[in-house]
Simulated assay, not measured.
Amino acid sequence: MKTLKLITAIAITAILGFTSCQSEESIQTGTNPNANSSTSPTASNFERAAMNDGSEDDFLDGSACTELLFPLSATINGKNITILSKLDFSAALNILGEFNDDNDTVAFNFPINVRLSNYTEVTVNSQSELDALKSECESAEAQGRDAISCIDFKFPITMLTYNVSLEQTGSVVIQSEKQLYTFMSGLNSDVLFTANYPISATLSNGTEIQINSDAELQDSISDCVQFEDEKDEAADAALEVEAILSGAKFTVDSYIVAGVNTANDYVNYTIEFTNDLKLIAKDIVNSTTGEIEGTYTVSSETEVFLNTTFASNTAVSALGNDWVVNTYSSTLVSLKSKTDASVTLTFKKI
């Protein structure tokens, strides 16, 4: 689902920063029966897509409605860390990802400064204040006022303005998301607008598009929002798969290559997925055989992936692959090769 950003109750009563973009030369005469009001779906689409994106630090504050401002310090899983820039996010992620079956905790050393979805910067003095902002964020989502972050416009964008008689009164050249948000959120009821199409944009799946009308804008947003929803569903499923695997032992229930089931090749082995992302293959029949170690990771896009790796030239090397998770339950995880759908593997929990 799309990233959430907070729409606060602060009213913006004037459009700031645009007077230098408007001149006598930019004003064109004419009428436009398709001009949009401040309450139109097009106005909402542009405004929500232009909100400040606070999603990059969600693993710390749990809310895309707040962008953490630097410097700040926090205690993460009992370890103190100072974050001076986004470059320090990797250190925080390493602490959080050390084990996949623990309860991660992030305790900020308040006060901290955050930037809200409307670009306002505020000081947060306690966890309760931060929780209140998160609650407002969840309310915005429930009411359909959450941000649309799956589309990035390419600037400049020109907005043509009209009066209620549909006569053009001017034009505004917008150079950034913040200016676009300010323009849309500051529109008066007696001002209408239309975008001077075409507009170029990039979707969250990397596709670059050209938008030629309000209808195409709506279609593009609907498509990319659906893509984001699928990504969120897959991310939730990935967490479930990782929880099933972590700290558990499995046997190879089936391993099919080109229609041939070779599970008997692994009948003597158990495969343990440890909570620190390691694999341990153990021969339960021949105790003199040493353990074979490997690694695993669970990830997702619009599907759930499991990567397994064992050292080459071992009895279980063939089980190492980039897998797509087909189905899963509390006792079975069924996989197919990412590159060859004829190769499938099913792990059964002991």
Rank of each mutant, 00 (worst) to 15 (best):
T194P: 01
Q179G: 05
T158E: 00
E216G: 02
E272G: 09
G206N: 09
S139K: 14
E228N: 08
S213Q: 03
S185F: 13
F250S: 07
D152Q: 09
L187K: 01
T251W: 14
N205W: 11
E208Y: 14
N196Q: 06
D265G: 12
Y266F: 13
F155A: 02
V267H: 11
I271H: 01
K178M: 10
E167P: 01
V173F: 07
G170K: 08
M184N: 01
S171C: 05
D236F: 12
T161C: 03
L187C: 02
L192I: 01
T169H: 05
Y197K: 03
F153H: 02
I221S: 02
K178Q: 10
M159H: 05
L192K: 04
V172C: 02
L245K: 06
D190W: 15
F183C: 00
D232Q: 07
V267R: 12
T169D: 00
L192V: 00
T262W: 15
V260A: 13
D152E: 10
I148A: 03
I271A: 04
V191T: 12
S213M: 06
A147T: 09
S165N: 12
I174D: 01
A258R: 12
Y266E: 02
E272V: 06
Y197L: 04
I211F: 08
V172E: 02
I244P: 03
A263M: 05
S149C: 13
K249C: 15
N268D: 15
V260P: 07
Q175M: 11
S246H: 15
E138Y: 14
S189N: 10
K278S: 07
A234M: 03
I221M: 03
Y269C: 02
E216W: 14
I256C: 07
K178I: 08
I199H: 00
E136F: 15
E272F: 12
N212V: 08
E216V: 09
A237W: 11
A237Q: 08
A215W: 05
Q179Y: 08
S165P: 05
N268W: 14
N268C: 11
S149H: 13
E136S: 15
K154T: 07
T262A: 15
L245A: 06
G186T: 05
P156V: 06
